[in-house]
Design a binder for these strands. Sequence first.
DNA 1: TTGAAAGCGCTAACAT
DNA 2: ATGTTAGCGCTTTCAA
Lengths: 376, 376
Amino acid sequence: MLAITQAGHLACSSEALGANNRESCPATGIPVTRPPSTEPHRALTLRDVSEVSGVSEMTVSRVLRNRGDVSEATRTRVLEAARRLGYVPNKIAGALASQRVNLVGVIIPSLSNMVFPEVLSGISETLEDTGLQPVVGVSNYQGDREEQVIYEMLSWRPSGLIIAGLEHSEASRAMLAQAGVPVVEIMDIDGEPVDSAVGISHRRAGRKMAEAIVAAGYRRIAFLGTHMPTNDHRARKRLEGFEEALAGFGLSVVDREFYSGGSALAKGREMTETILKRTPDIDFLYYSNDMIGAGGLLYCLEQGLDVPGKIGLAGFNGVELLDGLPRRLATMDACRLETGRAAAEIIAGKRATGVVGGEVVEFEPKLQPGDTIRKA
Amino acid sequence: MLAITQAGHLACSSEALGANNRESCPATGIPVTRPPSTEPHRALTLRDVSEVSGVSEMTVSRVLRNRGDVSEATRTRVLEAARRLGYVPNKIAGALASQRVNLVGVIIPSLSNMVFPEVLSGISETLEDTGLQPVVGVSNYQGDREEQVIYEMLSWRPSGLIIAGLEHSEASRAMLAQAGVPVVEIMDIDGEPVDSAVGISHRRAGRKMAEAIVAAGYRRIAFLGTHMPTNDHRARKRLEGFEEALAGFGLSVVDREFYSGGSALAKGREMTETILKRTPDIDFLYYSNDMIGAGGLLYCLEQGLDVPGKIGLAGFNGVELLDGLPRRLATMDACRLETGRAAAEIIAGKRATGVVGGEVVEFEPKLQPGDTIRKA
DNA sequence: TTGAAAGCGCTAACAT
DNA sequence: ATGTTAGCGCTTTCAA
């Protein structure tokens, strides 16, 4: 099942050894100066470029950063030398000296849920032309892990921090508050941000969906979602808003089913089968995400159920995937791309500002009725 | 659609200023307490902790890194002081002084294709207990962008670099070769790695699939995939291997269809419809990825086609998603998790080794026949 | 337009 | 077990 080949080749190129060590690649059999294996790799410094180009380190530094006035002649010579040597500046030293770091920490719970990579895309897209670089940390939905990641990131003194959610341990909140750089909490605005926040109100999203469902005439409504003891605050808030709105209509969720782990599509099928067998008169299935909703939809269609006539379905997130299903699942867009963009803009715009201000950007989740909810 | 609230609070606490927030007015020498609002945030240093705890900076440093012998009493006092102040070490300074950086650069083409986040999971899982931290860079399938990202990453002097693919610009290869740290090229081993490589042979994967298809008795075989002018080398190699093997049986691909962009599931449907209308006697559809394959499968089932009797289908990647489909699409596992793990192990195991060795780890892609290919 | 000196905050190496 | 000294490679500041 697993084959391992030991190639044991030497990554050797004459250029790799720098200008000041003439030697040949061992493979060719031509005499060499140094045995490569004993040569500890020494990274090039400004000094090397300085010596080769014949100008001071300071001038080399200026050229490489496009700072200050440098004569065209000098500029050319320096760039040429740097290129020839393959010089790569040491940002660690640069950052220490300048007290400036072009890194933005981004902390998300997971990479397996497409929702987060999508927000990331928005962030990285917006950061692209600001000279800032996102650095991603993953907390695995664990508070203590999140704490570690925050600590780790702050120790690199980034220009800003973007972090998913508003719920963090006390220690985490303390670190964020003291960070001295803009902090943007994303994907949820139902709560008290440490600094800035960008996202949608999940309570509101839940409420809106409930209103749409009731308006369409459904009454025996069930909820299906992830098992969310403490972790998935956003799903919990959505459910809270959902039930709150139902209560306003004198209704409540007639049954519910939870899962954790596994293929969401398959789980959606199973849960749907389970809940419909247990409570056959359900006329609407509200899923906490689109993938389980899609699984449920496939199940219902296979069973020949009348969707959306006898039974309606809705998910949450607005994932692109839904486009190819036999029927378009009703869902609600979580504005992930916009959220990522706005968060990045806050960080980018705040650079070099001493004052830490708080800004809350709320996006309005849009209902996408699809084909699985009756027209009102 | 978009609401913005300005909260404008100041993230300022007396603790943040450290123990020495009492200072003298330069002019009069009379002690004053500074108004917090005008206080530009100054990050705490070892020195602050040293002063508060009453031991030297060096000892504080030792405690914080668990290095060397420190008395339990001192240890406690230092930790207490650090905790109270909310001290977060400056890794930039630490890295510069120690010449060691616990970062591993990971460069992938995209985050939108779940394949890459999955490899990332394998990497980050394995790195977790090594003290190393992955830093992710995205190249958007663009060679020049990749070059920039490599440059940017190397300028932080990471302990290693993991990069998708074997095809890079000349400048990129030069940088990688000179990096002086282990470099692992992943997800493809058909080519000449700069240093180490981990992944599967896509040529071989294509060949294997062709053999399985022919063995099952299919003869009118079509290919559907991404439009791959220069970018998707892995898909290209797969197709090459596929056609090569077909040729061995005296067969060739009878039709082909390409797409780019959009929802893969929806595209899979469209392409399948198109190609089947154009060439009705096709008896096998080989897709370059599972998502378009799933779309095609849904289409075929809706059309009432006899799958796998009259027409067979296969995808590539072995994505978990397939589990919930009406029928399990035949596919080939690309060993993404294992690839991520092995790459991370190479980096972790090589730390502090001066020698640059090359190691090639090949995984064997496994055919998952599913329910869309006839039993031979 | 260019150069010299003085750190940035930490750790290695060497005292004590 | 703890402290002292001398940088790490760069940029800031000031001088020429």
